[in-house]
Amino acid sequence: MTSLKKYIPKRVLLKISGEALLGKGMYGVDPEIANAIAQDIANVVNSGIEVCLVIGGGNIFRGMTAASKGMDRVQGDYAGMLATVINAIVMNNVLKQYDVESHVMTAIAMPQVAETYIRDKAMHLMDKGHVVIFAAGTGNPYFTTDTAAALRAIEMECDLMLKGTQVDGVYDSDPKKNPDAKRYDVLTYTEALIKGLNVMDATALSLARDNRLPTVVFDVHEKGNFSRVLNNDGVFTKVVVSETDV
């Protein structure tokens, strides 16, 4: 079991990988997974914690993968951004089924689909307890959704960023391939960068470190895990600026 400092954050950003929405499928969004995640988010919102979201698009399209196969990187990244919009719209719809006031804001203007991201408006909505789902990354190619998540978390003045994945933390090697892989309870951003650990890309790590934004990596598929982590319980990895921040 891992412990955070004994406080409950007021405002958090939850970053969900697109792959985490796949479930047992090969493509798209598994409705059962989306509903389970939405219910966990609703429970956290109902507890009084303000939540915003960034969702990846890897379950639909990955720009870097396409670029490695010959597609123009810029066009591939834009396609990946559009994939995140699809996921955001789906999650927005599911959250409303749990009576959560939620909104999609995109970094690329598409007014027929969602609101365009304006920081002051997003802050106002969060102040009212609404969930804001940030889509289309940063609006620029060459930046991952991890970097977009770190950026939005800082802009929204979040106390904590959480990365919901398919594993229960950060390991020194791939736990799916190495049964002896070691999970870190606490990790500094500098350690993650030096060791090249698969937490987030270097830009996202540096951005979070430079703005003293702690990050928690946890298994988003385990029911109720979002609430447990925020209550200093469960299994996860906390990434901090220095070990004195734990």
Rank of each mutant, 00 (worst) to 15 (best):
Gly129Thr: 09
Ala114Val: 14
Ala135His: 02
Leu53Glu: 05
Arg62Thr: 00
Val44Ser: 06
Asp99Ser: 14
Ile49Asp: 03
Thr106Gly: 13
Ala109Lys: 10
Ala79Asn: 12
Met126Trp: 03
Ala42Lys: 13
Ile89Met: 15
Ser102Tyr: 08
Gly58Ala: 00
Asn93Thr: 15
Ile49Leu: 08
His130Met: 06
Thr65Glu: 00
Val132Arg: 04
Ala88Gly: 12
Asp72Pro: 09
Val90Met: 14
Lys121Val: 08
Ala114Phe: 05
Ala135Trp: 00
Thr84Glu: 08
Arg119Pro: 07
Gln97Tyr: 13
Gly80Arg: 03
Met126Thr: 12
Asn46Ile: 05
Val113Leu: 14
Asp72Met: 12
Val85His: 07
Asp72Gln: 10
Pro111Met: 06
Ala42Pro: 11
Ser47Gln: 09
Met123His: 09
Ala42Ile: 12
Ile86Gly: 04
Ile118Val: 07
Val100His: 07
Val74Lys: 15
Ala66Thr: 01
Phe61Tyr: 11
Ala42Arg: 11
Ile49Val: 14
Ile89Gln: 13
Ala79Leu: 15
Tyr98His: 15
Asp72Leu: 10
Ala88Asp: 01
Ala88Arg: 00
Val100Met: 13
Leu53Cys: 11
Tyr78Ser: 12
Gln75Glu: 15
Gln97Ala: 14
Ala107Ser: 14
Thr116Pro: 05
His124Ile: 07
Leu125Asn: 04
Ala66Leu: 06
His103Gln: 12
His124Cys: 02
Gly129Met: 10
Leu82His: 13
Ile133Phe: 08
Ala122Lys: 01
Lys69Glu: 00
Met110Gly: 11
Val85Leu: 15
Ile41Thr: 14
Thr116Gln: 03
Gly58Ile: 00
Val131Asp: 01
Ile89Gly: 13
Glu50Ile: 14
Thr84Arg: 03
Arg62Pro: 00
Ile118Thr: 04
Leu53Lys: 07
Asp77Pro: 10
His124Pro: 00
Ala136Phe: 07
Val74Arg: 15
Phe61Lys: 02
Ala67Leu: 01
Ile108Lys: 05
Tyr117Gly: 01
Val74His: 11
Gly58Arg: 02
Phe61Glu: 04
Ser68Thr: 00
Val90Gly: 09
Phe134Trp: 09
Ala88Asn: 03
Gly80Leu: 04
Leu125Trp: 08
Gly63Thr: 08
Ile60Ala: 01
Ala122Phe: 05
Ile133Asn: 02
